[in-house]
Every structure is written in structure tokens, then in C-alpha cells.
Computed example of a mutant assay.
Amino acid sequence: MLNIAQTLLRWCRDARPFALATVVDVRGSTPLPLGTAMAVDADGNAVGSVSGGCVEGAVYDLCRQALREGGAPHRAWFGFSDDDAFAVGLTCGGELVVLVQTVGAAARPHLAAALDEAVQGLPVAVAQVVDGPAGLLGATLGVLGDGRVVSGTLDDGSADAMVADEALALLRAGRTARVALGGSGPDCPGPLSVLVHVQASRPRMLVFGAVDFAAALSRAGAFLGYRVTVCDARPVFATAERFPYADEVVTSWPHRYLERTEVDSRTAVCVLTHDAKFDVPLLRLALDLPVGYVGAMGSRRTHDERLRLLREEGVGEEQLARLRSPIGLDLGARTPEETAVSITAEIIAHVGGGSGLPLSRGTGPIHRTAPRRRFSPVS
């Protein structure tokens, strides 16, 4: 849904009727991820995509039908058919379920409040009921990063509170996911399946060492959507002119900057200085923080010496096991630009659970689906 937030916001503000088709379940290899949406307005204008082209025509027709006939939201399944693979099916071999619903006058103002946050680039989560009681199917609820509920069409107090709590948790994790909620207790709504669409602040990439490799890595990190900081203790090298793709360039001792800056589980720490006086205090701190990735540049000899010094500083083996060193995947990289690709490839593989092997050497689906988190019933 948030992939087309700007158009949806305009349609909501214009009080324009539209139908929304959202990918609410994926299995196997599918072109686009969970939560991707397509919308069609009353004039037949379409925006967005649910499959990268495979089933767009069929989904467009379902949206037009929903606008003509009204009725309750409904789900449509699309998969691969050996007999008619290029008709209405996914030629990649996966399966997806699309929820088709009309967005009426009652829902538009509430949805617009959340979409407005998304368009401004602010953190927001939009929870959408994709399975459950007919009266709640397709209902939405929006949550800001500070926990305020900015929209809600569930019209069920206990469901609102439960969905808002889980939407906030996923917003803080920066992850779009489908979750199962509800239970059989007297104060609980019936079981619900809710897809939480998340737009979070950009993840951070902290690059330590104002070297040529850092210039290339900051550019690659910005391309991938990271908020990039380059930090070096030497003011003659740590300049904005040398790192035009970085969001900020900081002159500070690396470990002192890391002590005072904000990090989370999505933060990537890349240490490119390969100088022990910078590396050791920085890595000792980084390996003790809840960051998502810690990598350090250097030869294998440098790596071995670095490990020895870190052990002398009291860093345990469990912490050392988190260190990606020498940094990057073995791509045969030589230039700073090639090395940046090597490093970012390792970060992508680490975040996405990839093996780093050529796809031609593997089997099974090429697109991974994040495991669903199932919450205990609340009573």
C-alpha cells in the first residue's frame, strides 16, 4: 500500500472512489513482496503493481468489478499453471493472494491521515485486516512512530488496542509483516490476520575511515536507501566535499562518535580504517551494541592481529563471532567501487538471510519470505 501512498492520498483528499488490491500472502518465488498494492479509480486509472506484470490485467479487472458492483472485500489467488502458464498465472512459479476492496467515503479520511505521514517521509505503520470476521476484513488502522493512533476503521475497541500494539512493534523493527492476533478469551476479538505496512526511518550505515573505499561505499549505501554517516578523527580528510553521497560527515574519534549516536538492529557498522588505534576501541564498543552488522576491512593478517588485541581488551568469543572480517563477499573486487559492491552484497545477504552463492548453484525459490511472527492470544 505504501508503495503508492502519494496517489492514494490524492484520491482520498479528492473523495475519489477507488479499489485497492493488496498482496496479502506470498509463497515460493514471487516478483513483488508482501504489502505491495495496486489501485484503480472510478475512471479506470491504475497505479502500482502486484506482480511486476504477470497478473496485472486480471487484478485490474477485479478492481473495476469491485467498483461497479460494490460488495465485501474478497481474496483472489494466483499461481502457476502448467497448462496455461502465460494466461493468468505467475510464470516464476510462486503463488500470491490478493485482497481486493473498495475504499469508501467512511474510510478515506482515516486512511488519508496515515498516508499523509508516509508521503512526508515520516515513520508510520498501516495495519490492514486481511483475514477474520467479514465486518472487519479490509479495515485499516494507522500508527505513528510515537505510538499515536492516527486512523482507525476497525470500530472495535479491543481489536484497535491489540492491532495498534503490534503495529507499533513492527514499526520500531522497521519491518512489514503479516501477524496473527486474537484468541478465545472473553475480552478478545475473534482471530484476526493483520498485514502491517511499515514505513520506517531509513536504516543507518556508519562508515568509519575517510578513505577512497569509504567514498565508494557511501555512494553504494545511499543507493540502497541507507542514511550514511562517514566518521574520521582527521579533519583534513573528513570533509563533505570528499563524500558528497554521505548524509553527514563527522570529525571525531570513531568510538566516541559511536558512543553518542543512535543505532538500532538495522544499523550497519563498516570499519575501513584498519588502524589498531582506531579499530580496537571502536570494534570493542560496536560488538557490544545491538546493531545489525559489523564489518572491518583488512588483510587476514590484520584480522588475526585485530582479534588478538580485542581478546586482550576482554571481548568474548560470542561477540567476536559477530565480526565480519575481512569485510565483504569474495567477488574478486579490486577497486574501491568493486569493494563497495562486495561489502554491500554481504550486508544484503546478512540482512536477508542469503547464502552469498550464485543463484545458478542453488535450488528452490530465489525469493525468501520472512518467517511470520505469531503472537500469543491476549486476554
Rank of each mutant, 00 (worst) to 15 (best):
A167P: 02
A159P: 07
A159E: 06
S151P: 05
D146P: 09
R148A: 13
R178E: 01
G147Y: 03
A159W: 06
A161Q: 13
G174A: 07
L154W: 03
R175C: 08
S151C: 13
T153P: 06
A173H: 10
R172F: 04
A173Q: 14
R172A: 14
T153C: 10
T153H: 05
G157S: 11
E166W: 09
A159G: 11
L168S: 07
A169Y: 05
V149W: 00
T176W: 02
R172M: 10
V179C: 10
R172P: 08
D165M: 12
A159L: 05
V149G: 01
G152Y: 01
S151E: 08
A173K: 12
G152V: 08
R178I: 02
A167F: 00
G157N: 09
L154S: 08
G152A: 14
S151H: 04
L171Q: 04
D160K: 13
R172Q: 15
D146F: 07
L171C: 04
A177R: 13
D160R: 15
A159I: 05
R175T: 14
A161W: 10
V149H: 02
S151V: 03
A159H: 08
A180I: 06
L170S: 03
D156P: 05
L171H: 06
G174I: 06
D165E: 15
D156A: 12
R148E: 11
A164F: 06
G157W: 09
R175V: 15
R178K: 15
S158A: 15
A180E: 11
D156G: 05
R178L: 09
T176D: 05
R175A: 14
L170K: 02
D155H: 12
R172T: 09
T153D: 03
